[in-house]
């Protein structure tokens, strides 16, 4: 995949004809071919283009219909633009690894900051899990990750920062290292912060059929706002019920497990 094919040959030079259509140019750049078609992309991820391509903000009068059919989260529509026209455009994001994925009548949930672009044949919706977006339908999308994406089959437990997304609905839930946090030593650790934390007391657990996408680093990409959810009782992140005031929002000190202590009766 190197752009430097043979040593000494120098970098490969691309022109509009030799740029690969809908494929990676190198691990960090993806080329999208537009033939009168449309693509959704996150603002600021286009680095160059050939041909005549228009970039319009979503929710722009005549694009209203598009928003209705394939963009179901009007609350964060301002983060996205629609590219239409004909030509080839290059997408990249801070030298992260970029890859395209095909969905065929499927569903995939992805961390909002990792999604770069998608075809309007896919419908983008907010996930129930805060900070994640779900793509439903058939089509292609482009995602960035720190290091190549690794696909794993459930059952698996994943570090929260290493999770990129999941496909075909394995049920995601929290897993806590119960044995480590309870007991005399666990209580002492939670109270004093002494004894250290392994940093691995909490994972996301996936079971069931499906695929889990991992990135090879714990460095997160900048979170992209997914928009607020309706303030209703029963909506996760809606804030209308459940969490008592003052519990959330306070920064958690290292070695302190916050409300977990309370939950395990410590």
């Amino acid at each position: 995949m190197s752009t430097y094919g043979t040593p000494g040959a120098g970098p490969a030079v691309f022109d509009p004809a030799s740029l690969p259509p809908d494929d990676n140019v190198n691990p960090y750049t993806f080329c999208v071919e537009l033939k009168g078609s449309q693509w959704f992309l996150q603002k600021g991820k286009m680095i160059a283009y050939y041909g005549s391509i228009d970039f319009n903000g979503v929710g722009h009068g005549r694009l209203d219909r598009l928003v209705r059919t394939s963009f179901h989260s009007p609350l964060h529509a301002s983060d996205w633009v629609v590219a239409e026209g004909s030509g080839k455009m290059l997408l990249a994001d801070r030298a992260f690894d970029v890859n395209s994925f095909d969905l065929e009548d499927g569903n995939l949930t992805i961390r909002s900051g990792n999604l770069l672009a998608f075809q309007p044949t896919l419908a983008l919706k907010q996930s129930i899990v805060p900070g994640f977006l779900t793509l439903i339908g058939t089509g292609k999308f482009v995602a960035a990750s720190n290091g190549p994406v690794v696909f794993m089959e459930p059952p698996i437990r994943v570090d929260p920062q290493a999770l990129v997304g999941w496909a075909d609905c394995p049920s995601p839930c929290h897993h806590y290292d119960h044995g480590y946090m309870t007991g005399v030593m666990g209580g002492l650790r939670a109270l004093t912060g002494l004894g250290g934390v392994s940093g691995e007391e909490h994972q996301f657990e996936f079971v069931g059929a499906g695929t889990v996408l991992l990135q090879s680093s714990e460095t997160l990409m900048a979170e992209q706002a997914t928009g607020s959810v309706p303030h209703q009782a029963g909506v996760p992140g809606g804030g209308a019920s459940g969490t008592p005031p003052g519990q959330s929002g306070a920064p958690r000190l290292p070695g302190q497990l916050g409300d977990l202590q309370r939950r395990f009766g410590l």
Binding site: G147, P148, V150, I156, R157, G199, E200, V212, S216, E218
Partner: peptide, 27 residues
């Protein structure tokens, strides 16, 4: 697995040491 990820196999009685917080996922 790739340039930035390794997979380690752990069997009973054979332990590993790793830097804290460096675990990405496990089965």
């Amino acid at each position: 697995i790739n340039a930035k990820m390794v997979e380690a196999t752990v069997t009973p009685g054979q332990r590993l040491f790793s830097q804290r917080g460096a675990m990405l996922a496990y089965k």
